[in-house]
Design a protein around this nucleic acid. Structure first.
Lengths: 230, 230
DNA sequence: ATTTATGTTCTATAAAAGTTCTCTTTAAAT
DNA sequence: ATTTAAAGAGAACTTTTATAGAACATAAAT
């Protein structure tokens, strides 16, 4: 039987989204104290009650008597892309932190990867829809803004945001963020051939380059992509 | 199969549609007070009676004595093409869900929409956190799964999820979801030319088709795109 | 063993929301 | 016109939510 019921009050929904975000961004569920603060409450007992309501309705699971042992089971049916992808507005990225959230969260959204790279870190991975198993081994994720059109034939355009799961290895044929000579980071399809690694662009104007395996460090695996239209 | 269908009075139907819309757009069901206001009533008791009627007829479910605990189970069948688009039919939602819902995966990945369309409804967008000002003009958003490759040269691939802001009008040149003859929904670039509307694919294997303006209903504007890699 | 952080339970209060009644009004059908 | 079902209004009432504070319990760390 289908039940995506969004039988939630505002408070319940807000708390649920906060919990979800917190788990996505930091990997651990928030404490009652943190939830209390995020909702501007003055006592933890309300949080306990809200969580009980969420649990009753099947939105979260918890291990009783365990600290920070919450799991978000589902989100209200209209959870926004921003909720799912985590905050992703320019204002947030551009140090808009104080105005949106002088609280703890959102920090990990910032920061950029490596130096002199053609990509900038923007946000963190948040989605869990398609990758339930990611819940367990929720590796670290980066969000990177794509500059350039070298992957355009793979449907990755200039300006897109790709979400990359940190990994030091990927299967041959997958698209990954790689660091060449500890210097240049780039997004390419990786082909392993014996002791060499080929980096394929997805644009016939760019060639495939082949490197000795030791010159390449794989930074992460392409997991998903996000694009805004204007 | 063909159960009692539109055994709804006008009021009942209006309320049902309001509830559904409210849940889709805000994620939480409206309170009696809000419903009362939306129908321009001065007492809540009528709402209670209407909801009881809706529940008897199987259109909604509720948790008695719980606040904002309504769920829309199905919608009247005689809903216009527009209504069908605005609100998902329950049977359709059901299908898409169980395969995602059995595990703790979740999230509002809802099933597919309406008949014979190349797109499936997936989830909705409406933010709360990152764009407080958007809360006001928070248009309704839909998530649709793209089927087909007609927009591939715009970087929109088969299987992508696009997020569409509901709109009955878009600027010429923008990509939009349009309904042709109240029948077929499709994602195309819209060009207005006098009394006609041209729908451009972004794939040279597909041509541009030109329609009389009255055959086209614009459903929404493409806002963002999301893709998962495997 | 003692501290610290955290989760749980209890009471109490108030506000919000839902329910149930009675009565009136409206609209449709015959 | 008469009848009937649906809808509106209003009020009293019950239950749920939310907030608050305190006391207690549990788990981990020192």
């Amino acid at each position: 039987m289908y039940e995506v019921c969004s039988m939630l009050t505002k408070k319940q929904k807000n708390l649920l989204i906060f919990i979800n975000k917190k788990i996505r961004s930091s990997g651990i569920s928030p404490s009652y104290e943190e939830m209390k603060n995020s909702l501007n409450l003055k006592s933890k007992s309300g949080i306990h009650r809200l969580i009980s309501a969420l649990e009753e309705r099947g939105f979260v699971k918890r291990l009783a008597h365990k600290a920070r042992a919450l799991e978000v089971v589902k989100l209200p049916e209209n959870a926004s892309a921003n909720d799912i992808f985590n905050t992703f507005t320019p204002s947030v990225i551009k140090g808009g932190l104080d105005k949106n959230n002088n609280k703890s969260s959102d920090v990990s959204v910032l920061g950029s990867i490596a130096a002199g790279t053609p990509i900038e870190a923007i946000q963190q991975e948040v989605d869990r829809v398609a990758l339930p198993e990611d819940l367990q081994n929720n590796g670290e994720h980066y969000g990177l803004k794509v500059k350039g059109d070298s992957m355009i034939e793979a449907g990755i355009n200039d300006g897109d945001t790709v979400i990359v799961k940190k990994a030091s290895n990927v299967d041959s044929g997958q698209i990954a963020v790689v660091l060449i000579d500890d210097q240049e980071a780039t997004l390419k399809r990786v082909r392993k051939k014996g002791n060499t690694i080929a980096l394929e662009a997805a644009n016939r104007n760019y060639g495939t380059k082949i490197y000795a395996a030791n010159r390449i460090k794989i930074q992460g695996k392409l997991v998903s992509l996000y694009r805004n239209f204007h």
